[in-house]
Design a protein around this nucleic acid. Structure first.
Length: 504
RNA sequence: GCCCCGUUAGCUCAAUUGGUUAGAGCAUCUGACUCUUAAUCAGAGGGUUCCAGGUUCGAGUCCUGGACGGGGUACCA
């Protein structure tokens, strides 16, 4: 029995699996195809519910129609000559009834070899059981795909988070909430696309493998192209390519795709994560705030039914108009409780950062020190949506300077539930200023900052051709999905989160 | 990177101060059963207690190291 050997060689042959394999071999001996592909389904289960939920009694009996459904057997209750089980397809699940007297003795005998977990095809009409449950009465039955492995326990389900992440396919079969979260994720991304398309944005794809990783402050993954014998980086952001497209004349562009950052893993961070970035010519960061409120509230309403969403016990109000806008320095003072005498004075600010237990690197700029204070004292307190704008220029190498104060930029970050949700700014389109900022970054890199930006000469060259004034924004999709699905960990919203290799 | 916690049957969980042969429910197998839905009833089988050492007359339990996972923290945006 090759099936047995295959499992045995992997040392995974527990008695339950062995019994199933033997049962499968028995079916083969009776010329039952374990994996046929000729069953023709004509109805998804939800269609039955949509049409017949309210139909009862004689009216239901009078429905002269058969349905061919297919799906996984997820429960099984047998009484000898009659059996009830539930079949689950992508849309829903429904109870099925099979009786020996109606199927015939031989087909029923074969049917009885069905295990929970098998994928089956059933053809039959509808009726209601004594308890009133809408049920399909089996007229004919076919095994569609044999399952060799037992599903987790029917009542408690799959609790072990490690198994849920490693074997997401099992999680999806037995945990309705998991399925729901990923359906919501898809809906959220679709709504984002609809929204941006409607506003005249064009979706594009830019390189995920880049010779110069730019557009963010992060450690990249490195890789190598053999034929070109060339070092490549997995992108940390699409930003610089999208802005090249603004130069090229695509005035509203967006990309929803993966970024890769070689940093720690946590409930908020997966090494590969999905980002929406969009760029809007002839708009500024204030226009973006308006657009963002509209976008978030609309998506929340469409996906969850309300623009007020519960997150980990707190209601987050995403309704248009409910969002707070506050300048960065103002937030340090009003929310963080740091007076201007401290945050505006380099030495005092540095000492205060140390006092708060944060590390200070020699030569670190004031803006960076202020950002550290913000992280500790302000960010965790921003539960309802807050736009924090006018970030220090020191920590915003790609943002346009404020016209009245060159030390700050026309940039904002969006915070809620105590974490960053989006980063946006009026784009720097002055090539001379941009080159200077890159040079500062290169100096920081040489001073040991692994995450400082690289010089990107081609990007500066693009700016030299002239880029229209524009505003751009990046939104972490995983975090948005976490918010809208009330998920505490990013792993709950990524189908296959990165884990160490399984041992054994 | 550091700290804390967890890992026992296919799944969900027990196991007293270190003490007999590691238990239960579900699942599985055998039998009964024609309206059940965590079906029921009778019986049976199923364990590298994550791995490797150590302490002990005796280790699921204590110690050391390791693996994997979870949470926190740090780095980082």
């Amino acid at each position: 029995m090759p099936m047995l050997e295959a499992l045995q060689s992997r040392d995974e042959l527990n008695p339950v699996i062995k019994t199933r394999v033997e049962k499968a071999c028995g079916l083969m001996d009776e010329n039952v195809h374990l994996y046929p592909n000729d069953f023709k389904r004509d109805t998804e289960i939800q269609e039955i519910w949509d049409q017949y939920t309210e139909v009862e009694g004689e009216e239901l009996e009078a429905v002269d129609r058969e349905f061919a459904i297919a799906g996984r057997v997820v429960s099984y209750r047998s009484f000898g000559k009659v059996t009830f089980f539930h079949v689950q397809d992508r849309s829903s699940k429904i109870q099925v009834y099979a009786a020996r007297d109606e199927l015939g003795a031989d087909p029923y005998k074969l049917f009885k070899k069905t295990d929970v977990g098998d994928i089956v095809g059933v053809v039959g009409g509808l009726f209601r059981t004594k308890t009133g449950e809408l049920t399909l009465k089996t007229k004919s039955f076919q095994l569609v795909s044999k399952s060799m492995r037992p599903l987790p326990e029917k009542y408690h389900g799959l609790k072990d988070v490690e198994t849920r992440y490693r074997q997401r396919y099992v999680d999806l079969i037995v945990t309705p909430r998991t399925k729901e979260i990923f359906e919501m994720r898809t809906a959220i991304v679709r709504e984002l696309r609809d929204f941006l398309d409607e506003k005249g944005f064009m979706e594009v794809e830019t390189p995920m493998m880049q010779a110069i990783p730019g557009g963010a402050t992060a450690k990249p993954f490195e890789t190598h192209h053999n034929a070109l014998d060339m070092k490549l980086y997995m992108r940390i952001a699409p930003e610089l390519y999208l802005k090249r497209l603004l130069v090229g004349g695509f005035e509203r562009v967006y990309e929803i795709n993966r970024n890769f950052r070689n940093e720690g893993i946590s409930t908020q961070h997966n090494p590969e994560f999905t980002m929406l970035e969009f760029y809007w010519a002839y708009a500024n960061f204030e226009d973006l705030m308006d657009l963002t409120e509209e976008m978030f509230s609309r998506i929340a309403k469409k996906v969850t039914g309300s623009s007020v969403v519960p997150y980990q016990g707190v209601d987050v109000d995403l309704s248009v108009g409910a969002w707070t806008r506050m300048a960065f320095h103002e937030s340090l003072e009003k929310i963080g409780g740091v007076s201007p005498e401290i945050y505006a004075d380099y030495d005092k600010c540095r000492d205060f950062v140390k006092e708060k237990g944060e590390k200070v690197i020699e030569g670190e700029k004031l803006g960076k020190l202020q950002a550290k204070l913000f992280d500790v004292l302000v960010e965790p307190k921003l539960v309802q949506p807050h736009f924090i704008y006018h970030y220090p220029t020191d920590i915003s190498p790609l943002s346009r300077r404020n016209e009245d104060n060159p030390d700050i930029t026309d940039r904002f970050e969006l915070f809620m539930t105590g974490r960053e949700m989006a980063n946006a700014f009026s784009e720097l389109n002055d090539p001379v200023d941009q080159r200077g900022r890159f040079e500062d970054q290169v100096a920081e890199k040489e001073a040991g900052d692994e995450e400082a930006h690289f010089m990107d000469d081609d990007y500066v060259r693009a700016l030299e051709y002239g880029m229209p004034p524009a505003a751009g924004q990046g939104v972490g999709i995983d975090r948005l999905v976490m918010l809208l699905t009330d998920s505490a960990s990013i792993r709950e919203v990524i189908l296959f989160p990165l884990l160490r290799p399984e041992v054994g």
